[in-house]
């Protein structure tokens, strides 16, 4: 704090050469002492948050199935690429791992594309088009946000039994497509696009669907990005519905595989192989996260969760 005050005093004294904006920057500037605290706390949090993942990462390169005590956190002890290759080979030859991986990708891709297509179309209609009962229908969409999934899960399960959809792709995919949050994100975003652009397109003779598809949707890229990311991660990590829906190993998705692999050797978890499975299931979410990190905050701003 002392440093900050000093600087400000100096600045005010030689005011002539300084722009007003700079003075304000100085008012909010962070002194060196405070900087040290920020650095310390930030790095401490990163260490706390990364330690479990760090151990996971090391364990993939080790040959011992046990978790030894004290935990070996030295990155160079007992780790080798050869161990990783052995672990990796053991994992992908376990059960029908490639099929399970495919199931997860297939389900996630279809749920995401379905949810984004259906949600963006409806979001556009709710934002722009006028029709009778529009508000009522929108409230119905919002109502789905109030119904927690477990409440409908029992009946959904019975419904799937009645349809004969237990352990089927359609049973995994179709009930997951509805996302009130996506509709909400799209509606909010489409409302911010200037109407003039659409009116111009209307004069050119485009019908509302063409306007949505050719003009407005391409302009709503951030909304599409946010919806895609959230839906993908949600579906990829979903556990409860596949657990209820899938009773056959052929339809396993990765969270089910993780749980299955955990218990496959009785009470002893084979930690090196287990961590390899965990890492393999994390890769797609990590890649998406690294590529689209900036959309994560944006997504929340879009959905109207703000001060």
């Amino acid at each position: 704090m002392m440093f900050g005050n000093d600087k400000r005093g100096k600045l005010f004294r030689k005011e002539k050469g300084v722009k007003k904006k700079d003075v304000y920057d100085m008012l909010l500037s962070i002194g060196p002492a405070k900087k040290v605290v920020i650095y310390f706390l930030s790095i401490l949090l990163v260490i706390i948050y990364m330690l479990p993942f760090y151990w996971m990462f090391l364990k993939m390169f080790r040959s011992s199935i046990f978790a030894h005590f004290p935990p070996d956190l030295n990155p160079f002890s007992l780790t080798s690429l050869g161990n990783f290759i052995v672990n990796f080979r053991d994992v992908i030859s376990f059960g029908s791992f490639p099929l399970w991986y495919f199931n997860s990708v297939f389900v996630a891709v279809l749920v995401v594309s379905g949810s984004v297509a259906v949600g963006s179309a409806a979001g556009y209609a709710f934002a722009r088009l006028h029709f009778k009962g529009r508000d009522l229908l929108f409230y119905a969409v919002l109502a789905t946000l109030m119904i927690p999934f477990p409440v409908i899960s029992i009946a959904s399960y019975i419904f799937m039994l009645d349809l004969g959809w237990i352990s089927t792709y359609q049973g995994l995919i179709l009930p997951e497509i509805v996302s009130g949050l996506n509709v909400f994100i799209f509606r909010q975003y489409f409302m911010t696009i200037p109407v003039d652009v659409e009116n111009a397109a209307k004069l050119d003779g485009l019908n509302p669907f063409q306007i949505f598809y050719r003009i407005s949707a391409p302009m709503a890229r951030p909304a599409f990005a946010a919806a895609t990311i959230y839906t993908f991660i949600g579906t990829w990590n979903n556990f409860l519905w596949p657990l209820m829906e899938v009773h056959s190993q052929n339809l396993f998705t990765l969270p089910l595989v993780l749980n299955f692999f955990k218990g496959v050797n009785g009470t002893q978890i084979y930690w090196n192989e287990m961590m390899t499975v965990v890492f393999l299931t994390l890769i797609p979410t990590l890649v998406i996260y690294i590529l689209f990190e900036r959309y994560f905050v944006e997504g929340f701003t879009l959905s109207g969760v703000k001060g």
């Binding site: 259906v118 179309a121 409806a122 088009l129 006028h130 229908l137 497509i177 509302p208």
Partner: peptide, 30 residues
């Protein structure tokens, strides 16, 4: 306006169908 309304229903129809079948119906069924 009539055209607009028609397209409005068309665009919300898939979503509403899914909501009715996979959310509202199970909720009532439950």
């Amino acid at each position: 306006l009539k055209l607009e309304a028609r397209y409005g229903y068309l665009l919300v129809a898939p979503l509403m169908a899914l909501i009715v079948i996979f959310t509202f119906f199970p909720a009532i069924y439950s």
